[in-house]
Structures are given as structure tokens and as C-alpha cells.
Nucleic acid binder design. Structure first.
Lengths: 91, 91
DNA sequence: ATATTATTTAGACAGATATCTAAATGTCAT
DNA sequence: ATGACATTTAGATATCTGTCTAAATAATAT
């Protein structure tokens, strides 16, 4: 997925909150959903966008699906920002 | 402006391109606009969103309005990302 | 004063997005 | 096999967003 997809994924506050939740480690879709007022379907939709953007990774275990952070894409984003002060090229 | 505003401002590819343009130094609204296919009005709208988000700063000089980067907000964003790998709190 | 140039503001509109409810899929226990 | 649980998918809808043209504001030059 392009860096544009990563940006779009992170433009929504709920999705950024999900990312911050996952800083502490992997969590099931239901547990993630429990932290928000939105329906499970809505959170599932957000998770799918984060997954498409490669910001998170999912792993099935029986009834549950666990999600965790993919830090390598996050490093790419840091690169975009740091280059702003260094005058490098991007995208 | 909140960090949410910064995120929204950067979620649009044209606005990110504007930011990258300004890496090389300050530039008038017209010169910025000349780099894009959109109308002046559209670019002006993008500039106003970037300004509200404190990502850029404007300065009037006669007929022209010059825009330049505000790097301190960019540093805030870098902080958001780097904390993801360090497990700190945000927002 | 009038015209020209630079830029923004206002209003309209098509397309994108976040959300919901309801239905579908998949897994486990009985 | 049936029922309960976990999660996703489908379809609908209201709101948000990027874009346009046209009009407004502001500065300069003739």
C-alpha cells in the first residue's frame, strides 16, 4: 500500500486511537471495540482500513482475531517528517 | 490548533505536496498554485487549511502573500510517531 | 479614477467517508 | 446438529471534503 493510504488511514481519530491502544500489545477485535462507543461493525471497518494500510496485522486464533501494530510502516512515516527539516525528496 | 487538525490537514495529497514544495523556502500563493492543475481558489483553500493547522505561516508583502513552513508543529507530529515504538502517552 | 494583477471568499455540487442495522460467516461447546 | 459467541460484510444514509466558477477584496500602476 502507498504512503497515501497510510495517511488516509491515520486521518481518522478513531483509527489513531486504535493504533495507540495497540501500543500496549496485541488485542482481539472485541476487546478493541469495547474501548469505543461505536458498533462492532464500525470498528471492524476501521480495522480493515488500518490493515489495508499495513499499519496493523491480524492473526486468527479460534473464535478470536488478534490485531497488532506493524512498526515498519510507522518508521516510513517518521522518515517523511524528518526529511521535512532536511530538504530530502519524498513519494 | 489540535493535533487532530494537523492530521486532517496532512491527509490530503495536494496539501502534502504543498508542504514539500515549501521545504525549499517561502513562496507566494500564485507560485505555489502554478505547481498544480487545480484552480487558484482550490489551492487557496488548501493553504487556509494548512494555516489553520499551523503547519504554514503567511506574510503579506504588497500584492503578494508568502507562505512558509512552521517546523515546530512538524516536530510535534514526529513525537507522535516516535512514541509509538516507545509506549508513551498521547493526545 | 480606472484597469490590472494577486489572492481570498461564497455558493454549489459530486464523490468520499463514518456510521448504523441487519444479515452472513466462522468457531466452539453441548 | 443446534445454539451461542466473535467478527465481518452488505446496504443505506447523513455528513464531510475537494473542486469548480463567479464575485469580492486588496494593492499597484497608469
Amino acid at each position: 500500500m502507498s504512503i497515501a493510504g497510510t495517511w488516509k488511514a491515520l486521518s481518522d481519530p478513531t483509527r489513531r486511537d486504535i493504533i495507540e491502544l495497540l501500543k500496549s500489545g496485541k488485542m482481539s477485535a472485541g476487546d478493541i471495540s469495547a474501548h469505543f462507543n461505536s458498533s462492532n461493525a464500525t470498528i471492524s471497518h476501521h480495522l480493515s482500513i488500518l490493515k489495508q494500510a499495513d499499519l496493523i496485522h491480524d492473526e486468527k486464533d479460534g473464535k478470536y482475531i488478534y490485531y497488532d501494530l506493524n512498526t515498519s510502516v510507522i518508521d516510513e512515516m517518521i522518515g517523511w517528517f524528518t526529511s521535512l527539516s532536511k530538504g530530502e525528496e519524498n513519494e
